[in-house]
Design a protein around this nucleic acid. Structure first.
Lengths: 227, 227
DNA sequence: TAGATTGTTAATCGATTAACAATC
DNA sequence: TAGATTGTTAATCGATTAACAATC
């Protein structure tokens, strides 16, 4: 029995990072009244290899593309949306209502991606009770019951670095299964909990470093696509 | 003549994304007074393969590690810092002093990574003249002369999506060579300009999607290391 | 039809992991 | 010395690219 490559349920990690790009672009096309889009067009506008785009789309599209015309915009947008879960709301909680926490709580773009940050928690009693972007801020003690009652599985950590692990532990105890971590500390979590670290300063530092490298050794390293 | 693999000047893309992690961890070790660190220790704490860590360190360390003890903490921290440019300040400008712009202007962590966001620009005349985190906010008209006078090559775009391309064009005209883009539009830039897109909502959406996949097909996909 | 576009199979490329000899 | 740790070479794995037949 030969080995099955590209099993249908598993999508390449990198495809996942490109789907939002396609989505954003196709969304604009739809708004502009365009009815069809080809892989070539997407590839050109997003600076990607057309074959790569075709493979990505083949994986998520529910219908085959039409030779000569490409994909139907509405259908494709819907398919990517379904695939990525943009079309059904996922709920998340946020802990740490500092400046980053506030941005996330009030950023309306999350909704477009199927995400609803339902409440913010903070240990500061002066913050508790107020609302931000229509979201309540609650004291930490309320976390467990709320998470369990609503069956929430995604948590966002925007507390200072030295409190991150503690908050993480609390989240895990509540039953959170995926954590988006803005603190710059590696979190210890059980095997079955996903962690995605976000570190803005180091993202910029990587960009700065690439620029420095590029000036030192002229080459054609250009758009940074990896995300 | 056989092909040279792993040319010394080019570092694997992914190494670059791990170096900040090493740096952060070793920095804490240094603060705690620890004098030596092994690849194995780093690997364990950061959830990475030890061989991978050894290869990464071999690429950036100026001295070989010592069998049995590992690497000297001060030296290694310095080497990674030098390699990534944390030890020499890079200057950047920021355009768009909204909530995200403010966070970036006032976040002191950038300094640690060798980054200094020197000024913010905004087209709102009411913002111009004030200071945030010790940084002046200036009107857009001042951009060109300041960028050229200071020889700045990094620009950060935190304006609304529909103004991003215009700001990008302005930056490019001023001589900016690397752009960190928070708007959700693909920027058109000349060949020699680097662009790094940041899209927080879609990062979270990818995490949510992975969680959904994992629940559907139990497997051992766990920590998300790619950054 | 001719040609643009699709989807697929094979080749290439690059990063990660495994195996192992060298070192203090 | 024995053993932990290093750095390197070879094997594996996975993603991207190239080549191409199929389709409207």
């Amino acid at each position: 029995m030969s080995r099955q490559n590209t099993p249908s349920l598993v999508v390449m990690k990198s495809t996942l990072s490109r789907l939002p790009l396609y989505y954003g672009y196709i969304d604009r096309l739809q708004a502009a009244g365009v009815e069809a889009v080809s892989s070539a067009m997407l590839a050109q506008h997003l600076n990607l290899n057309p074959v790569l785009v075709r493979k990505d789309l083949a994986q998520v599209s529910s219908v085959a593309g039409h030779p000569r015309t490409g994909f139907e915009v509405n259908q494709l947008l819907d398919d990517i949306g379904n695939y990525m879960g943009y079309n059904k709301m996922d709920e998340a909680i946020l802990v740490g209502v500092g400046s980053m926490g506030r941005i996330l709580l009030t950023n309306s773009k999350f909704e477009k991606f199927g995400l609803n940050i339902v409440v913010g928690f903070d240990k500061d009693p002066y913050l508790c009770g107020i609302q931000l972007g229509g979201k309540h801020i609650l004291p930490m003690e309320k976390m467990e019951s709320l998470v369990q009652r609503m069956g929430i599985r995604i948590g966002i950590i925007t507390v200072p670095d030295d409190q991150a692990q503690e908050v993480c532990d609390q989240m895990v105890r509540c039953g959170i299964k995926a954590i988006w971590n803005f603190a710059f500390v590696p979190l210890k979590v059980p095997e079955d909990v996903l962690v995605k670290n976000e570190n803005l300063p180091s993202s910029l530092a990587v960009l700065a470093h690439k620029l420095a490298m590029k000036s030192a050794v002229p080459s054609k390293i250009n758009e940074i696509t990896e995300n």
